[in-house]
Amino acid sequence: MTTKKMAIIATKGTLDMAYPPFILASTAAALGYDVQIFFTFYGLQLLRKDLSDVKISPLANPAMPMPVPMPVMVQMLPGMESMATMMMKQKLAKHGVASLEELRDLCLEADVKFIACQMTVDLFEFDKSEFIDNVEYGGASMFFGFAGETDICLFV
């Protein structure tokens, strides 16, 4: 049986959108898939050594369940983003959901390959020293070399 393959393109850098790539990648790896994640645009934030700046905002996120209805005028007040992030992290911990750091480590342990989009790294003038070490840098063509052979390819 040939090894199945999955490729994910991670483009978002918010707390809620950071989870799906790492959850799917770690699970696929556990099922024996060969997995690569291509991080581009804001998804690059998920490669930082320090993930504490990965946050969630209730603003422009009307589907986010809130304990009490919150008018947009309130959501835009200073500190609301930090508060929403703190509440979300507490909720995740309470339900036994792994932290992003733990899921990312599990991906790396399972040999999930992380590729950072060189163009967007340059575009946003990211400092590679702020990223974790296990990252390869490349472009879309390099990614397609793998993605073209996959059984599952997702854009997150």
Partner: peptide, 29 residues
């Protein structure tokens, strides 16, 4: 106490150092 995908991902890890034919007991909530 662990939520998806940890029970599966860590079961895989627990199996890694076991020999073929050995049995792993997993408890999950």
């Amino acid at each position: 106490g662990m939520s998806c995908p940890l029970p599966i991902v860590k079961t895989k890890k627990a199996l890694a150092d076991m020999a073929s034919g050995q049995v792993l007991r997993v408890i999950a909530t």
